[in-house]
Design a protein around this nucleic acid. Structure first.
Lengths: 140, 140
DNA sequence: ATATATGCAAATTATTTGCAGTCAA
DNA sequence: TTGACTGCAAATAATTTGCATATAT
């Protein structure tokens, strides 16, 4: 799925939910579809601005909330940083953060997921969502 | 270890680090030693105040930072809430949060810890710290 | 046409900080 | 004695919101 297709998919998801695609939102969807990293609201605001879209920071926040509510994007909050956002297509994953470089790597572990479910089940719970972050450093 | 002994242990750790035990800090250490839950700065402020200690919120924050820097307490940040604090004696554990009641349960999984280390190692990393939270709901 | 979205500026929340005075060691 | 600590009030940082206006459907 290329960027344009991805942006289009986001747009469709919103339209389906009855959410209006304004010029500002279209621009943000495009910026989000292009993001390979995990940008925060302010970075998205700057990227959209640079791309020529006249968007205010307040609208960025409001749009991100709407997109998150529709399950189109995910909010991730790392320690001591403003919230970041990532497209929610692709499969579930967790994050590994290099504490020296700041680099973020995504990873999946079926086994960890399963263990988590087991631990919750033992106490009579089912998992609604979870958050797993590994703060790491390159080995010497 | 009873509460008083725990408070004493905290105090010793601070003294060892050359940190002065003021009336305010002593009071906060006592409140922290008593905490069975995971209170935030504001709750600690109220508990200390109720206990008759004249402490300001600014001092609560400054003291918590000092205690955290000394490894005496840990800061835990759950989604959408102010930071909470817990005594750092006892062994490492992760948290399970009941999304309906807010109840927090601590748990440990050697197997998950090990899998995390393996995943990091595969990419040439070692884990500095990690954060794992399960947001759960009672099964029907 | 009209409900929904936008921009701006002001409000909120959690936390931090400068400074002048206070106190533990 | 004196450098570390405290309280207060003001500053920050990230995010949210009220309101008058603009716009997508």
């Amino acid at each position: 799925m290329d960027h344009e297709a991805r942006a289009q998919a986001f747009e469709n998801a919103l339209r389906r939910a009855g959410i209006r695609i304004t010029r500002q939102r279209a621009a943000l969807l495009r910026v989000l579809a292009l993001a390979e990293d995990h940008p925060d609201a302010n970075q998205l605001f700057h990227r959209a601005t640079k791309a020529g879209a006249g968007v205010s920071l307040a609208t960025v926040y409001r749009t991100l909330s709407a997109l998150e509510a529709q399950g189109v994007i995910l909010k991730v909050e790392f320690e001591g940083e403003p919230a970041r956002f990532e497209p929610a297509d692709g499969k579930h994953h967790d994050h590994m953060i290099d504490v020296d470089s700041g680099e973020v790597t995504e990873f999946v572990s079926e086994r960890i997921e399963k263990l988590q479910a087991e631990i919750a089940a033992e106490l009579g719970y089912e998992i609604v969502r979870h958050r797993l972050e590994l703060y790491v450093r390159k080995k010497p």
